[in-house]
Amino acid sequence: MNLTLKVWRQKNADEPGQFVSYQAKGISQDMSFLEMLDVVNESLMTEGQEPIAFDSDCREGICGTCSVVINGAPHGEQKATTACQLHMRHFNDGETITIEPWRAKPFPVIRDLRVDRSAFDRIIQSGGFISASTGGAPDANAIPIPKPDADTAMDAAQCIGCGACVAACKNASAMLFVSAKVSHLGVLPQGKVEKDRRVLAMVNQMDKEGFGNCTVTGSCEAACPKEISLDFISRMNRDYAAAVVKSAWNQS
């Protein structure tokens, strides 16, 4: 099939960007969306033009690197699917497709479709871990974990940190991302010890990075390729409130 692409091109963070149209010809429906972009890039490069910069690595929906907004939807309309796993069989011959980077203040554009998501790393650095240095761990079966808790932790831990939740949110809120990590670690007995400290530090860092407030529109959950549930946001709100009360109590 043949398609028209309207792609966001921007030389660097300082220069303004604009949409540029490209023709994608002879696209097979078995191609992934990114393979379709590869085809366009290959022809640009053989003509000596610079390729469209976009991020990808695993191309199987797990590393969270790919990050393009397709026709207004982060990773495209297909449910529970990253852009690298989205296949061209979901598009029609002759269609025009708009392709943009994640748009959120805390994720500045580096070039074209590449953005800087280091704010997510800094949030994890602020407290998204269990402080268990190598060496001192007890036998792994010493602390049994009820299966439902282990399953809930895993549901939250599946987050791939791609940032689609932020890109989908009109407030650029990072609540889904942060709450997934807070919940993953918080429901496990090993993570309970640092629970309060963790949620306070991570929420604080999230605010510092300039992510917006959550007004529970649910667009993050809808855009999440791993279907992380909004329930984790409510859980984090409870954890946060409890931690604030406790820390105030401790200070008084």
């Binding site: 268990a132 001192g136 792994a140 049994p144 299966k147 932790a153 670690l185 090993q190």
Partner: peptide, 14 residues
């Protein structure tokens, strides 16, 4: 396995 469980790796459980 001990180290990873201590870090909160959500291994499958019975």
């Amino acid at each position: 396995i001990d180290q990873c469980a201590a870090q909160g790796v959500p291994f499958a459980r019975e």
